[in-house]
Design a binder for these strands. Structure first.
Length: 204
DNA sequence: AGCACGATTAACT
DNA sequence: GTTAATCGTGCTC
């Protein structure tokens, strides 16, 4: 299936976050394909967005968001979790889309091994859960999502209609001031509209 | 050098 | 609903 071109990511984080719904995240892990349908995203854009890491300006951690679109921004948080983002917008515009949830398509056996004892519906229904399932960590920070010879990319997959899409406040921004705390920059697919039993505990 | 806190998760009550 | 786990990052001293 066709890999999303760099032009796809060279747009505003809001547009990319919405359009990534229904696309397929693919990870080539030791030669084995793992993939899933993207069903939840969040947009983070600009130094003015106090929910975005770029609020601190250019730092060793945030510099990737200032770079070319179509690269992975992977960061570590809470002392134990990895998060995967896709860098958006042009050079010097710090913005990215957080991939919060996918529905597994390929590599189920590999995911099952990494998520032993966890119900299938909860394998990849959170940003850190999908990173654990897909074996995503710091080694993929800065990876080119548009390189067909790479280890991670996003394929065309499907498109989600407006009627099947929801928007709402981003999750986990407890101490972030308004309007950033409540601005509806989170996008997700209505459970059931996508052909899967997966649920997300963060759904209203 | 030290400190507060985090784009979370899982296991509790 | 509440909370411990656990350490990189950015800021202050």
């Amino acid at each position: 299936m066709e890999i999303l071109p760099r032009e796809f990511y060279n747009r505003s984080a809001l547009t990319v976050a919405r359009d990534l719904l229904g696309k397929h995240l693919v990870r080539l892990d030791d030669g084995r394909r793992i993939s899933g349908v993207i069903v939840e995203t969040e947009a983070y854009q600009g130094e003015d967005d106090l929910g975005c890491h770029a609020r601190a300006g250019r730092t060793p951690r945030t510099q990737i968001m200032y770079g070319a679109p179509g690269h992975a921004y992977v960061y570590f948080t809470y002392g134990m979790h990895w998060m995967l983002n896709a860098v958006t917008d042009g050079l010097d515009v710090p913005a990215a889309v957080l991939l919060r949830a996918v529905i597994p398509l390929e590599g189920m056996d590999i995911i099952a091994g990494r998520r032993a004892g966890v119900p299938r519906a909860q394998w990849t229904d959170g940003p850190a859960k999908l990173c654990k399932s897909f074996n995503i960590d710091r080694t993929l920070n800065g990876a080119d999502l548009c390189d067909p010879a790479g280890e991670i990319w996003i394929e065309m997959g499907g498109t989600i209609s407006d009627s099947a899409m929801h928007t709402g406040a981003r999750i986990g921004l407890y101490s972030v001031p308004e309007p950033w705390k409540s601005i509806p920059w989170r996008f997700w697919v209505t459970p059931g509209e996508i052909n899967s039993p997966a649920q997300n505990r963060n759904e209203p």
